[in-house]
Design a binder for these strands. Structure first.
Lengths: 158, 158
DNA sequence: GTACCGGTTGGAGTGCACTCCAGGTCAAGC
DNA sequence: GCTTGACCTGGAGTGCACTCCAACCGGTAC
């Protein structure tokens, strides 16, 4: 299989495949007589998994780290597991956040719909509120921290 | 409230707040005698919602579009709703993808753990394979079914 | 034998979303 | 009056993840 075929099968562009090889995400393939890359179909499994990691929010650095560990064989099992466990945690958190947002959106969409129908709708009461002013942001920006205790608050963001 | 206070309360940096104002995500605030921005606390609702949109994967362009519609008042209700509905679809899709990944990860983590314990584990047989784009949404993957030799897709990505 | 297609390389360019900086103003505290 | 610290502006710089490009090469079809 040459790079064009792999591109088609994997859904990545040839440029991206070469880029991934350059940074080390993909192993260096064999070359044919004319110096062209020749791939084994098994590479598709790996590309698929990489793609999954990416599409669930793992950045290139961590994917690179995982790829690097993978080349080290059995010795890296524990580290690889830990990396995946960390990612699992992130994914679970993302699911929680997204699920919460689904409610917020449904609420808001519903209110919009009622307003479009001419109904008088009380000021948005959900959704946009996250931090209750009591919790001090504690200086260090708690980046993507999610507060499960967030309560709805009167809201003027229509 | 001045920009420093708002930064602390919103979790955004003053630079980011000014940047958001520059591109139009935030309305231009009033200024005090010395030309400094003075904010009303209600802006926090809006920032919170923007932040939620962002953290659920809405890019700056769409947030900008929404912000722009918002300034147009009632006339833009329908368009705003459509935008949110589109985002809702995206969020629902993301949840599905992430949830699927959770299974993949659990499977893989489990196998790693067994391998670490010295168990002989059959070649990774799951996970990395996605529905090859030959079989469309045959989605119902046999989730937690332990298949001792089902598909011809033995996989070397350990 | 030449047109064409698909491949090769290194390097430059893109879009997003900030983040940082220089050089300045303003208000309050000592 | 002077220092300090928060704030102002415009613009440059950063990191990620590609994406595009020029210039070239090798194999096949006509």
């Amino acid at each position: 299989m040459r790079i064009g075929d792999l591109a088609e099968k994997s859904g990545l562009s040839t440029d991206t495949l070469r880029y991934y090889e350059k940074i080390g995400l993909l192993p260096r393939p064999l070359r044919d007589g004319g110096g062209r890359r020749v791939y084994d179909a098994t590479i598709l499994r790996w590309i698929d998994f990489l793609d999954r990691l990416k599409s669930t929010g793992m950045g290139i650095k961590d994917r690179l780290r995982y790829a690097d560990l993978r080349t080290k064989g059995e010795a890296s099992l524990t580290e690889r597991r830990k990396l995946l466990e960390a990612h699992r945690g992130k994914v679970a958190g993302d699911i929680a956040r997204l699920t919460e947002m689904l409610d917020v959106l449904d609420d808001k969409i519903d209110r919009y719909r009622r307003m479009e129908a001419g109904e008088t709708v009380d000021p948005a009461f959900e959704s946009c509120a996250r931090t209750e002013h009591g919790a001090p942001p504690s200086k260090e920006a708690p980046k993507h921290e999610h507060r499960p205790g967030a309560r709805p608050r009167a809201d003027a963001e229509t």
